[in-house]
Design a protein around this nucleic acid. Structure first.
Lengths: 140, 140
DNA sequence: CATGTAAGTGCAACTAATCGCATTTACAAC
DNA sequence: GTTGTAAATGCGATTAGTTGCACTTACATG
């Protein structure tokens, strides 16, 4: 099954409709590969389909984030970055000093999620997680 | 030592100047008690000192967040909430379904911070942390 | 207390993001 | 196919937040 079809299945399963705008926005994000901002997605989408509105992009990215298809990360500098996730969940370590972003495997947060569920009854959605701090290089 | 003085000490220790605007903004936030947005802080500050600019509020809250005096939490609905922290670090569990916010003790994240430091050399700043998910009541 | 300077502020212009509402459209049921 | 309807879109208006720059001010030093 192609990745387009797979995305469509996830959307439909969540009760969402398959619109050209939506597929185009998600496809753009998936093939962007790295972190991109909403305005960049908008610009790229408009090159193919000029009359897409900014609000549609924000709404699409927001709902896709809730479905776990994309991650939505506030990088701290006024720009929210989006990234395609697919099945491969991971998290981000963001250095306050150099601004570098590194990925973090899911396993680090599994025990936290388990503890929250057992002790608080809170089913944590750890799909998008940004941890700020200082990386090894910048600690000097 | 009064809380005003204590705040001033933290600011000065970080190489920041003690300005009337800054003290007013932080004082407002401290006595607000709960989560408040930047526009609400701005409005409250302007009642006492009308010519404070929005950018000053954002800059002050941002730098105070880096110092760990306040937490800065994206609640997911387009509004970033600020909260006074002082010495009492804690985190937030935010329910996607009912929007409820509950506090979480620091201890849950200590082991995560230790693991990140030992295995990745990353010194995590866990001062402001928002965990999204579904709370016990909403899971049905 | 006078002074040098680095940090902070206000202003204006701008980008980012949200929201309500009228219109359109995907798609399920017949 | 036709049709009903709930969801999605586009538009306009508005709020939230950022940035560059000229001016001001806190405060350290002598």
């Amino acid at each position: 099954m192609s990745c387009e079809t797979e995305t469509a299945v996830v959307l439909r399963h969540a009760g969402q409709k398959i619109t050209p705008q939506r597929m185009l926005i998600l496809s753009t994000l998936r093939h962007a590969g790295e972190h991109v901002t909403a305005p960049i997605v908008l610009e790229a989408v408009r090159r193919l389909y000029p009359y897409v509105d900014a609000s549609t992009v924000y709404r699409t990215l927001g709902s896709a984030a809730e479905l776990g298809l994309v991650s939505e990360t506030d990088m701290g500098a006024g720009d929210t970055q989006f990234e395609w996730i697919g099945r491969d969940r991971h998290h981000h370590l963001i250095c306050r000093s150099c601004g570098g972003v590194s990925s973090l495997d899911n396993s680090y947060l599994d025990s936290l999620a388990t503890a929250l569920y057992d002790e608080q009854g809170f089913q944590a959605d750890l799909g998008h997680f940004a941890i700020f701090g200082v990386c090894q290089n910048c600690r000097v």
